[in-house]
């Protein structure tokens, strides 16, 4: 008996090799994780340092100065990004929510399977191709680049993100809530909007935040829809519009039909210019962009995780 036991311990070669392989390979997985996190930290720290050195208040409230001169800011890009993300949200969120409601209300029809599949495909379409589509559908008929076109292509980027997360979140709403409302005689739409949507509101909102973060960081689809515009300034349009007694709709139309700039678009242009000042500004733009996108992302995910754990409990 004892011999047998010893024999097991004395199987050293095979056993030791297996244990060694085990530890070695498991160690490698840890190293892989470490190596993936290195570039993340590296990028964040580098952007913080490089951008932090340049950034000041002027950077946020001035339009760019001519190339090769000092100073100037990226007000045009901040306003452009803001406007286009708002247009995108207006175009993307209502149909996305309705489609998500469809997926939850009729989970197993042919159309709902097709919608899920198309959503996945849409999420996989390269953003540059969506940009080409936007060019063909909006810029060509309008015959000019515009903030509107930029907003619409960003909406196409946001759609799949919102649909997916909204469906997930609406599915988590207990069916008793819905059935209860219906049993009390509430029509389907009232149940959806006044019972299910509030119950899933936090989750849906986080999904929207993620999609906004995604849209705000996109460059490729804007290259030939919004094009870029160094003089984009909402204040000027409003001022001029009021001075010449135009209606509100007219002013908004004026703003939307201008080519617009966005933070990532500006970053792309500045990064490739030979002027050191512009490159410094590119780093500062990267800082603003990263802070915005990562803050939205982290907030949304932390919020989501909390909510999910609360529902499971």
């Amino acid at each position: 008996m004892q011999e047998g036991l010893f024999a097991q311990v004395n199987l050293p070669k095979v056993y030791r090799r297996r244990r060694l392989t085990n530890n070695f390979m498991l160690g490698l997985t840890g190293i892989a994780l470490f190596l993936a996190i290195v570039p993340l930290i590296w990028i964040i720290v580098y952007v913080l340092i490089k951008g932090g050195h340049y950034i000041n208040l002027d950077f946020f409230i001035h339009l760019p100065r001519p190339m090769g001169t000092q100073g100037g800011g990226v007000l045009h890009a901040i306003e452009g990004s803001f406007i286009m993300v708002i247009i995108a949200s207006i175009f993307a969120i209502p149909p996305a929510l309705l489609a998500a409601f469809y997926l939850v209300t009729y989970p197993n029809t042919l159309l709902s399977d097709t919608v899920r599949f198309s959503t996945d495909l849409l999420a996989g379409v390269p953003s540059i191709v969506i940009g080409l589509f936007g060019y063909a559908v909006i810029v060509v008929p309008q015959k000019h680049y515009s903030a509107l076109a930029g907003g619409v292509v960003l909406a196409l980027i946001m759609l799949p993100v919102v649909i997916r997360s909204a469906e997930e979140m609406l599915k988590l709403v207990p069916s008793e809530l819905r059935e209860g409302a219906l049993a009390l005689g509430a029509p389907e739409w009232k149940t959806a909007l006044k019972v299910m949507l509030p119950a899933a509101a936090e989750g849906v909102l986080t999904g929207i935040m993620l999609s906004v973060a995604r849209a705000a960081g996109e460059t490729a689809p804007l290259l030939f829809t919004a094009l870029g515009n160094d003089n984009f300034e909402i204040g000027r349009f409003i001022h001029y519009g009021i001075a010449s007694h135009q209606s509100v709709i007219n002013i908004i139309g004026q703003i939307l039909s201008q080519p617009a700039d966005a933070l990532p678009l500006t970053l792309w242009k500045y990064a490739q210019q030979p002027y050191p000042e512009r490159v410094k500004q590119a780093w500062a733009v990267a800082l603003v962009l990263m802070l915005f996108v990562l803050t939205l992302n982290i907030t949304a995910r932390v919020w989501l995780a909390k909510r999910k754990s609360r529902i499971r409990r």
Binding site: A36, L40, V47, E218, T219, A271, V293, R301
Partner: peptide, 24 residues
Amino acid sequence: LNYMIEMLAAVPSVVYGLWGIYVF
């Protein structure tokens, strides 16, 4: 750790490009 991996996916593509040109 999951957050960090997701952050890696969330960093905008242009920022990767900028970092790529001047650092990487």
